[in-house]
Design a protein around this nucleic acid. Structure first.
Length: 552
DNA sequence: TTGTGCCTC
DNA sequence: CAACGAGGCACAA
């Protein structure tokens, strides 16, 4: 919700690079507005500012990229295209084999969450256009405000020009966190392992819940279950939620937007239903395709998922492996990972702050020291130390740079972090933002050899157990999958596992050998697809991981 | 490894 | 007057 996604920069001719600031109006509650008038006001308020100039420069870079892409495209021979199409068709067959229609995934999204909470707690606001945030930036707006073009990721002072009577309420994170906890309690009734994507959004797999109901003689449809869940959320929080029900997270997310607010949408678990749904879907609706990707693909004539399929040979020939793999998954309506909110290990911790632009060295040093102390506290709270310190800074022209340095030993000492970060600070620049990040994280609480990933994971589990059982479980799952490619050095017994395709037992004789074995199996499966129908869902999961590794 | 860019909420 | 903050991943050199 609190989107930072840049205001949609719709296609604009290179000649007049105006329109860089255009309103992003393809979200819920924004249909049928006088966008011309709104855009004019936004343009007016932005023109000439450093931010605006930065946006323009950025758009020019994108335009150059597009020109490049088009040039490469024009050079392609028919021969190459034919080959590219064949490659993609082969990949598509593999993906098709892994298509899993056995699960019922739900994406739940609270409606205008922060704004809804504030309206609930202050009824006078209900009839007024209001937004949560500050004059510098809004995180959410209510539906009344959206009629004026006021939306998340818009600076409050511009929103005021669009809607002078707009009430701006400051954010109250502790409150939203508390409400979020209540909502998540309801989620847990339907999937104890649900995965929270943010305070107001989560992915649930209700397959087992539905089976349990049926076994108990109280069968209900997915739609009924989700209606009930949303009613429970309303009851316990007085807030409405929208939901999407689909065979995978990627599609469920799109579906939850369909009948927003206070609605839901079911996509049947059949290939036909999925392909019909995906056909005319604008690619921008898919999580992971943002402003830039939309423009790049748009320049190739790709606007919908069907276009993605029709032009698949171009994707293969012009983009990286992980990109065309992802695009093909989208074109086929097959979920990918990460986009479905699966839990991941934390890789970094950071603090940053924006301030009135200055070039005063001592002032900047003070800010870095402050940030370093804040970061040290966060690390302390999380029970982590780290070995890499990154300094991030943004100039008054909005250019962002990062510099990184390695420490000799992992630390969470604020003074040590500050010293490292200060050494990265360039002199004589006008800056408006500074940030300090710690990465290469390790857990220091293990005495002695603190680099053992085995011990680290164990400790993470202990820490996680305190906060959320579902997360703990997911971590353990991740650990199991890791053992597939990273044999635990502390054990001497060789690991055994079954090939997800042929189900034969294999020893862990290395990732390469394993992958080539699976490749062989898959190729055979493509020739004899009928043999795959027996594959159970757990082998599906392993296959998914296999593809992740290959894509990398 | 270092640094940038894109993307998400 | 005035355009966030935190985090992950891909990619290139």
């Amino acid at each position: 919700m609190a989107g930072t996604s840049d205001v949609a920069t719709e296609k604009c001719s290179p000649a007049e690079s105006l329109g860089v600031m255009k309103l992003n109006d393809h979200k819920a509650g924004m249909q049928g507005l006088d966008t011309a008038k709104i855009n004019q006001i936004i343009e007016e308020a932005s023109k000439g500012s450093q931010f605006y100039q930065h946006k323009q420069k950025n758009q020019e870079r994108i335009n150059a990229k597009i020109a490049n892409l088009k040039a490469s495209c024009a050079k392609l021979s028919e021969e190459q295209k034919k080959l590219g199409r064949a490659k993609m068709d082969s990949l598509a067959r593999k993906l098709e084999l892994m298509r899993d229609l056995s699960r019922t995934i739900v994406h739940v999204d609270m409606d205008a969450f922060y704004a809804a909470v504030e309206m609930r707690d202050c009824p006078e606001l209900k009839t007024k256009p209001m937004a949560v945030g500050s004059s510098a930036m809004l995180t959410t707006s209510n539906y009344h405000a959206r009629r004026f073009g006021v939306r998340a990721a818009m600076p409050g002072f511009i929103a005021k020009k669009l809607c002078p009577e707009l009430v701006i309420v400051p954010t109250n994170f502790p409150k939203y966190t508390e409400v979020s906890r209540q909502v998540q309690k309801v989620f847990a009734d339907y999937d104890p392992e649900f995965s929270a994507a943010s305070l107001d959004e989560a992915y649930l797999d209700i397959t087992d819940f539905l089976i349990a109901r049926k076994d108990a003689g109280a069968e209900m449809t997915a739609a009924e279950a989700v209606e009930e869940m949303r009613a429970k959320i309303l009851e316990s929080t007085q807030l409405t939620a929208s939901a999407g029900i689909a065979p995978n997270g990627m599609l469920a997310k799109v579906c939850s937007d369909k009948n927003k607010p206070n609605g839901q949408f079911v996509l049947e678990n059949t290939r036909e239903a999925v392909m019909e749904f995906i056909k005319d879907l604008p690619i921008r609706k898919i999580s992971g395709i943002g402003n830039v990707t939309e423009q790049l693909l748009g320049s190739l004539g790709v606007g919908t998922c069907r276009d993605l399929w029709d032009k698949r040979e171009l994707l293969y020939l012009l983009f990286s492996e992980s990109s065309y793999d992802y695009f093909l998954r989208v074109a086929l309506g097959i979920g990918s990972f990460g986009g479905d909110g699966s839990e991941r290990e934390r890789k970094s911790v950071s603090c940053e702050t924006t301030f009135r632009s200055t070039s005063e060295h001592e002032e900047l040093c003070d800010i870095i020291r402050q940030l370093s102390n804040d970061l040290a506290q966060d690390l302390e709270r999380l029970g982590l130390t780290g070995r890499s310190v990154t300094l991030k800074y943004k100039t008054d022209k909005f250019d962002v740079k990062t510099r990184i340095t390695q420490l000799l030993d992992p630390t969470r000492d604020g003074a040590v972090i500050a010293k490292a970060a200060l050494s990265l600070l360039p002199v004589g620049l006008h800056l408006r933002l500074l940030g300090v990040r710690m990465s290469q994280l390790t857990s220091p609480a293990v005495t002695g050899n603190n680099n053992s990933s085995r011990k680290q994971r164990t400790l993470d589990e202990l820490l996680l157990a305190a906060e959320c059982p579902a997360r703990k479980k997911r971590k353990l799952d991740a650990q199991v999958s890791n053992s597939l490619t990273e044999p635990d050095p502390t054990t001497t017994t060789p690991l055994l596992f079954t090939c997800p395709v042929c189900h034969s037992w294999r020893t862990s004789d290395g990732e390469v050998a394993l992958n080539s074995h699976i490749d062989e199996c898959l190729n055979q499966q493509v020739l004899y697809p009928e043999t795959t129908s027996t594959g159970c869902s757990s082998s599906q999961a392993k296959l998914d991981r296999y593809v992740i590794r290959r894509a990398k």
